[in-house]
């Protein structure tokens, strides 16, 4: 049972990570900086609960704020460039953050134990959950409550004017600009929101694994972050969840019996899916027919 709860926790954090990339992708920007924002969130939240003794929720809020503000600051210079240039700039950002934490030491002694981040060895002993008597079930429920809240907020945003504005920028920047939309403001806001969500994901991740290090937050993780919404389809938040279940549930866990071959199949399946369904698993047409299936008018 604990295994499945553990899997649920992983899926929850990855869903949040995917959603953080989803917001940015809505504006047509490919950001590989999400792993960097997640790293910032993870380290800030863990330092607040372990070193400063804060409660978890407050630490998560601050982690999310710090990651969001960083995203906003990175957004201004990075969003001057488009397409490939932005991909490379955000790759560089994630690497800078990772290398920063690789060189980052800040330890204090608590009892007879040295705690805090220690460069390449990472940040051990993030024991908030065990110290406060949370079971795996509690943690899984807590993570999915956060996921549900974020998803509800994004689902609502997709239907509001803000969502329409994001999509307008994503579809055609020049047309959006000529409608009086401030491109920079929209893109930087999307980046900030994405950073804040990635910060929450990082904070949750740090606490359920109890040990984080720089090698957790590589370009590979950033690639996963954009892979979820792209594979799942950008027309709805549920696409991201479907892709997380497909990748983490089916490809990573479900194919475990294949042993080493699983990793080979993983890349091949991504190539295959993009050939068969270039707009993602749940693209706009599929969503529309699903809606008809459940007897609702398209709208």
């Amino acid at each position: 049972m604990d295994f499945y709860l553990g899997l649920l926790q992983i899926m929850g954090v990855h869903t949040l990570l995917g959603l953080s990339a989803y917001v940015v992708l809505q504006t047509g920007q490919v950001s590989l900086a999400q792993a960097g924002f997640m790293a910032i969130g993870a380290y800030v939240a863990a330092m607040l609960t372990v070193l400063a003794g804060w409660p978890l929720i407050a630490a998560l809020v601050v982690a999310s704020l710090v990651a969001g503000i960083t995203a906003c600051l990175v957004g201004f210079p990075a969003l001057r460039v488009h397409g490939l240039m932005l991909v490379v700039a955000t790759i560089a950002f994630t690497e800078i953050v990772r290398l920063f934490f690789f060189n980052f030491d800040y330890q204090i002694s608590r009892g007879n134990l040295q705690v805090g981040p220690l460069g390449g060895e990472g940040f051990r002993q993030i024991r908030y959950f065990p110290e406060n008597g949370w079971t795996t079930l509690h943690v899984a429920v807590f993570i999915w409550t956060v996921v549900a809240l974020v998803m509800a907020a994004l689902w609502w945003m997709d239907r509001s004017r803000a969502g329409a504005v994001l999509r307008a920028v994503g579809e055609d920047e020049i047309a959006a600009q000529s409608c009086g939309i401030n491109l920079t403001a929209v893109k930087v806001s999307a980046m900030t929101a994405g950073g804040a969500i990635a910060g929450i994901a990082g904070g949750l991740y740090a606490h359920y694994t109890t040990h984080i290090e720089q090698s957790n937050f590589t370009i590979l993780l950033a690639t996963f972050a954009i892979a979820y919404p792209i594979l799942g389809g950008l027309s709805s938040v549920f696409g991201t969840v479907a892709a997380v279940i497909f990748i983490q549930g089916f490809l990573v866990e479900g194919l475990r019996f294949l042993g080493d071959w699983r990793n080979l199949l993983f890349g091949a399946l991504i190539v295959l899916v993009m050939n068969i369904r270039p707009s993602g698993l749940l693209d706009a047409r599929t969503m529309a027919s699903l809606r008809r299936l459940f007897g609702r008018k398209e709208g």
């Binding site: 690639t223 892979a227 594979l231 991504i270 993009m274 050939n275």
Partner: peptide, 9 residues
């Protein structure tokens, strides 16, 4: 996005 993702795969 599609070719970006396929080459990442």
């Amino acid at each position: 996005l599609a070719t970006l993702m396929s080459t990442v795969g």
